[in-house]
């Protein structure tokens, strides 16, 4: 037996989630409030500077810069959605009268995506851009 909560009402499963979420979100501000009471304050402007190994920071950090893995990110979106389609299939896989058809359909799907993967490798899209 595995049911530890009456799952007939789906909300019941998520009440504990809501409770924990509220506590988890409140924890950092509460801790910081405590720190505010306990910690000393010193007046110095230097401590508000951005740390850059001791030297005066040059420019802003929020600049346009070359993300070397842009093509990976595109491929990631494709593959992650592939995995999402696998989840519902995985749960019904063992039901006797759909196993065969579900397997064949999903194998076709996986092979299509696999060809896409081989194409990416051949095109050298999955290569760290220098």
């Amino acid at each position: 037996m595995s049911g530890i909560i009456d799952t007939s009402n789906i909300i019941y499963s998520y009440i504990p989630v809501a409770i924990i979420l509220v506590v988890a979100l409140l924890m950092p501000p509460m801790t910081m409030l405590l720190v505010k009471q306990l910690s000393p304050r010193s007046k110095s402007l230097a401590k508000y500077e951005t740390y850059e190994a001791g030297s005066v920071p040059i420019g802003n950090a929020r600049i346009q810069f070359n993300v070397e893995y842009y093509l990976y990110a595109i491929a990631f979106v494709l593959f992650d959605i592939e995995v999402l389609f696998l989840y519902p299939w995985a749960t019904i896989f063992k039901e006797p009268n759909i196993t065969t058809i579900a397997t064949i359909e999903m194998l076709i799907f996986i092979f299509v995506v696999l060809f896409g993967y081989l194409y990416l490798i051949k095109k050298e899209a999955l290569k760290w851009q220098k």
Binding site: A24, L25, P29, M32, V35, S39, P40, Y48, E49
Partner: peptide, 25 residues
């Protein structure tokens, strides 16, 4: 707990405070 909490002058204060909350959550 007894160290001073410093938010750098150049930081985005809102995100700086909310970042740990998202992580913890």
């Amino acid at each position: 707990l007894t160290k001073e909490d410093i938010i750098p002058a150049n930081a985005d204060k809102l995100l700086f405070v909310f970042g740990p909350m998202v992580l913890m959550g």
